[in-house]
Amino acid sequence: MKMTSTPLQVDGNQWTEYTLTNTNGMSVSFLDFGGIITSVKVPDRNETYQNVVIAFDDYQDYLNNTSYFGALIGRVAGRIDHASFKLGEKTFSLPANEGDHHLHGGQVGLHNIVWQVELLERASSLAAVLYHTSIDEESGYPGTVQYKVTYTLTAENTFEIDYEAFSDQDTVLTLTNHTYFNLSGDLETDILNHQVMLDADQFVELDDALIPTGRILPVTGTAFDFTSGRPLRDGVNSIDPQNIVANNGYDHFFIFNKQQAADAILTDPVSGRVLTVKTDQPGVVMYTSNGLDDSFKLKERLSAKYLGVCLETQSSPASLVYDGFPTILLGAHEVYRKSTTFTFSVL
């Protein structure tokens, strides 16, 4: 196993890209800026190692990373309706950075700050610990929050993300990572023939602005039923109003049943690569990159619609408005701890 670091000068900013490589040859690279995952190289069934995540060709493009490629997301992952929420008797106003709404922590979020990084080498794994503190009222949120996010690569080709946060005041918080996966390798094809299994019987209905309506719908008999596995293409071809609202695809929160060994499984039948996701988060936003176009130059090609799929494990900002949703409240002096593992294998 080995760890390397590469200093970068990006538009006058000093960043570092770190790479963790295990004994099998799997590697994960990330930036201290935004904790951004820039590469995950894993083998296909023929032992060909290729990158399976979307990343910019020019690091400078991460300064305006409106698609959140590979980034850590917080304080709150997802959309907050009309950029405000009530906590106790007080209403907090946040910057509106997507129409009238607040998305992924706003313009100043975890995706565009420089983290402190500590590298740790263990017997059967490599780890990078990322630290950051956000001050009270940053982007309108209450409380000074101390963050600790650990990236771990194991000898079993598992990449684990462990999240910790501590606030000195009652606040709202749910963290995730916004990596776009494409198991074809080096973005050879889109993800429409990727097969997905989700251990989820319910998903959250969205309005035309992609804000939850408060309704939790059953997946049965719809293109949202991934309990037995199905190709992502089904949602693109679907005439379900919920697929159409999401620009002909998926951008929805699925609530996990927690009844299977895996919460989600992503498979590319052509390359044979399989990604198995396990988490203690209550659900996942599955986003099929419906909003991408060809305006971004990536490492391997121009960006395109349906080029990657995000599996954003998290709680739901809808809980700020509606009952029955996984909460994002974090009490003063409580510790937020969540973990998600991404294990790569082949058919």
Results as ranks from 00 to 15, higher is better:
residue 308 G to H: 07
residue 132 H to C: 07
residue 283 G to S: 03
residue 61 D to T: 11
residue 41 K to H: 11
residue 88 G to T: 05
residue 312 E to Q: 03
residue 312 E to S: 02
residue 265 I to N: 01
residue 306 Y to I: 02
residue 113 I to F: 10
residue 122 R to P: 00
residue 154 T to C: 07
residue 342 F to Q: 01
residue 19 T to F: 11
residue 252 H to M: 05
residue 130 L to R: 09
residue 208 D to S: 14
residue 270 V to N: 11
residue 32 D to H: 12
residue 226 F to S: 00
residue 160 E to G: 03
residue 206 L to W: 01
residue 67 S to Y: 14
residue 99 G to E: 06
residue 303 S to T: 09
residue 10 V to S: 07
residue 60 Q to T: 14
residue 27 S to L: 07
residue 25 G to N: 03
residue 115 W to D: 06
residue 88 G to S: 13
residue 215 R to Y: 10
residue 323 D to Y: 08
residue 130 L to W: 09
residue 274 V to I: 14
residue 109 G to K: 00
residue 21 T to L: 13
residue 153 L to S: 04
residue 334 E to G: 06
residue 228 S to I: 04
residue 307 L to I: 05
residue 332 A to Q: 10
residue 236 V to Q: 08
residue 213 T to S: 10
residue 244 I to Q: 14
residue 297 K to N: 13
residue 224 F to H: 13
residue 250 Y to M: 13
residue 196 V to F: 09
residue 101 H to A: 04
residue 119 L to S: 12
residue 49 Y to P: 00
residue 7 P to I: 00
residue 96 A to M: 02
residue 4 T to H: 02
residue 296 F to C: 02
residue 8 L to K: 11
residue 223 A to W: 05
residue 162 D to I: 06
residue 318 A to H: 06
residue 182 N to A: 05
residue 54 I to N: 11
residue 318 A to K: 09
residue 160 E to P: 06
residue 345 S to Q: 04
residue 24 N to I: 13
residue 171 T to P: 06
residue 39 S to K: 09
residue 290 N to G: 09
residue 113 I to N: 05
residue 260 Q to F: 00
residue 118 E to T: 10
residue 261 A to N: 14
residue 309 V to C: 07
residue 167 S to I: 10
residue 292 L to T: 04
residue 305 K to T: 15
residue 38 T to Y: 12
residue 288 T to G: 05
residue 250 Y to D: 02
residue 220 T to L: 13
residue 206 L to H: 06
residue 330 L to N: 08
residue 122 R to E: 15
residue 189 T to R: 13
residue 249 G to E: 11
residue 185 G to K: 08
residue 234 D to L: 12
residue 239 I to A: 12
residue 181 F to G: 00
residue 203 F to S: 10
residue 228 S to E: 15
residue 97 N to G: 08
residue 21 T to D: 03
residue 183 L to N: 07
residue 267 T to E: 12
residue 128 A to Y: 04
residue 325 F to V: 03
residue 113 I to Y: 12
residue 287 Y to I: 03
residue 159 F to E: 08
residue 289 S to M: 04
residue 289 S to C: 07
residue 42 V to I: 15
residue 336 Y to M: 07
residue 176 T to G: 06
residue 291 G to H: 14
residue 301 R to V: 00
residue 174 T to N: 08
residue 52 V to R: 00
residue 234 D to K: 11
residue 163 Y to A: 02
residue 25 G to H: 05
residue 178 H to W: 05
residue 107 Q to P: 07
residue 163 Y to Q: 04
residue 35 G to Y: 03
residue 182 N to W: 11
residue 131 Y to E: 10
residue 143 G to T: 13
residue 183 L to P: 12
residue 170 D to I: 09
residue 87 L to Q: 11
residue 264 A to W: 06
